[in-house]
Design a binder for these strands. Structure first.
Length: 458
RNA sequence: GCUCCGAUGGUGUAGUCCGGCCAAUCAUUUCGGCCUUUCGAGCCGAAGACUCGGGUUCGAAUCCCGGUCGGAGCACCA
């Protein structure tokens, strides 16, 4: 099995849709997982992507057995192109692209198709000296094929741009359909699993296999993935990063794996999602809710709880009984796992609560006391939880005045400022927490006296 | 326009090949209830689907024909 991306950017969720089923097949049925970087169009190479792709694949938990760069394999492609010419299965076409299309669309062969092998070989030898557009190498298919797209497709063309890895060493470049078929055959691919946008390409490639007398692999196609709200397109993301709309490849609004990882979505979540979607031909629309639900199932019991007070307001609670001041309050890090221990908060009359909770009525500060709020002023109401129940109090989180500054970058890239409890100092970058009543978030950065989190989901 | 493909609850799927055991699976979602000092989880309950029209058949989600809707491809990109 193989995963063969174009190195135009880091991997996004659409790539995962291709990589994961290939990886799962190898896990289940054995065989090799080959990563082949298809860098045969210098215009579409984003150099850092060579690294990024491997990083992202690793994040997904996929370790390729072998890695190939197509730009290392030009000589191989030349060798097979020549062989193809010798077999009379390909010809050098010097027609203008537009002219050719006109003929082709009417099931007409162009004059070049009748070149002798010798004529073709001669042109092939001169190919490297030609200018872009002067000639191409075409594979003979069926000029009467009912799908015009299949008719005599291009295998080789001239590219004058400099290649990031190869410089100007090569001018004759293989087209994707050619290099892919040669590699798939040479690397022993038994199954080719790819998106249905390649349906016509599979058809084209079959002609090449037949010309060469190769065994045709099993072509399997799957439908498109439609994600709500995000632009999957790498080029759009790139443009947005350049003009400053997005902060980088891991901007939370993007669908890149880096962005997803930054928010604390687990690789297992993505794998599970792709396995569930399967490889059927019809398109699938997936919602964030679905991803969040799966992710919650995975992280819910792993991560610890803390208090975070968004948009905090300070209240000074009047009439707190003397004996309740300075109380040390312990709350479990996870209610179902007592053995993880507790975090501690010290209660005094001055506390911060979320602005949204500063509404008239009785509220219970979790594990502390019940307060009555009226016109923005708070006064002691009672102490026990039973009293809170009786008063139908809302139960809210709070932090003492020793709280730490925190920012949470939300999924729309807006920032919620607030305070989190002091025990959050124990957290390391990369840790995921659940802020009670707020949602799951991943600690992204510790900046001086401030913690910066990325919001995952409820 | 041409070529090809697809269609099961809000979403993702199982079932379709080899018609009956499908008044349709599982998950997510939404809404109630119980429990719980958050949320979530858990437990209980509920909501919600075979694209439409014909045909074949004793019997159709499943087979056939047609319509509709949706998607992909139609490059000297991958």
């Amino acid at each position: 099995m193989r995963f063969a991306p174009n190195p135009s950017g880091p991997l996004h969720i659409g790539h995962a849709r291709a990589a994961i089923p290939n990886g799962e097949y190898v896990k289940k049925c054995g065989g090799k997982f080959i990563l082949r970087i298809e860098d045969t169009d210098p215009k579409r190479i984003y150099e850092p992507a060579y690294e990024l792709i491997q990083e992202d694949l690793k994040w997904l938990g996929i370790e390729p057995d072998e890695v190939y760069y197509q730009s290392d394999r030009f000589e191989i492609y030349y060798q097979y192109a020549e062989e193809l010419i010798k077999r009379g299965a390909a010809y050098m076409c010097t027609c203008d692209g537009g002219e050719f299309k006109k003929l082709k669309d009417n099931c007409q062969a162009c004059p070049c198709r009748d070149n002798t092998v010798e004529e073709n070989m001669e042109l092939w030898k001169k190919f490297p000296e030609m200018e872009a557009g002067e000639a191409v190498l075409r594979v003979k298919t069926d000029i009467n094929h009912k799908n015009p797209a299949i008719r005599d497709w291009v295998a080789m063309r001239i590219v004058e741009e400099e290649h990031p890895r190869m410089g100007t060493k090569y001018r004759v470049y293989p087209m994707m359909n050619f290099s892919v078929s040669v590699d798939d055959h040479l690397l022993g691919m038994t199954h080719v699993l790819r998106g249905k946008d390649h349906l016509a390409n599979s058809e084209k490639q079959k002609y090449l296999y037949q010309h060469m007398g190769w065994e045709i692999p099993e072509f399997i196609h799957y439908g498109r993935l439609k994600m709500e709200d995000i632009a999957l397109s790498t080029s759009k993301a790139m443009a947005g990063i350049e003009d400053g709309t997005y902060s980088g490849w891991d901007d939370p609004r993007l669908g890149t794996l880096k962005a997803i990882a930054r928010r604390g979505i687990q690789p297992e979540t993505i794998t599970q999602l792709m396995v569930e979607i399967g490889i059927k031909m019809s398109d699938s629309a997936i919602s964030w809710k679905k991803i969040y639900g799966l992710n919650r199932n995975i992280i819910e019991q792993k991560v610890n709880r803390y208090f975070f007070v968004p948009n905090p307001v300070k209240i000074d609670i009047a009439d707190v009984p003397e004996e309740d001041l300075g109380l040390t309050i312990e709350r479990p890090l996870h209610p179902d796992f007592e053995e993880r221990g507790n975090r501690t908060l010290v209660f005094n009359s001055e506390v911060y609560i979320p602005e949204a909770d500063l509404t008239d009525g009785i509220s219970r500060l979790m594990d502390a006391v019940n307060v009555e709020i009226k016109d923005g002023n708070a006064s002691f109401h009672s102490k026990s939880f039973e009293d809170a129940r009786e008063a139908k109090a809302r139960i809210i989180q709070w932090v003492p005045t020793d709280a730490i500054k925190a920012k949470v970058v939300m999924d729309d890239a807006s920032v919620t400022e607030g305070l989190c409890e002091i025990d959050c100092n124990d957290l390391k970058v990369g840790d995921i927490v659940q802020f009670e009543r707020f949602g799951f978030a991943r600690l992204d950065e510790i900046k001086d006296d401030e913690l910066i989190f990325y919001y995952a989901h409820k």
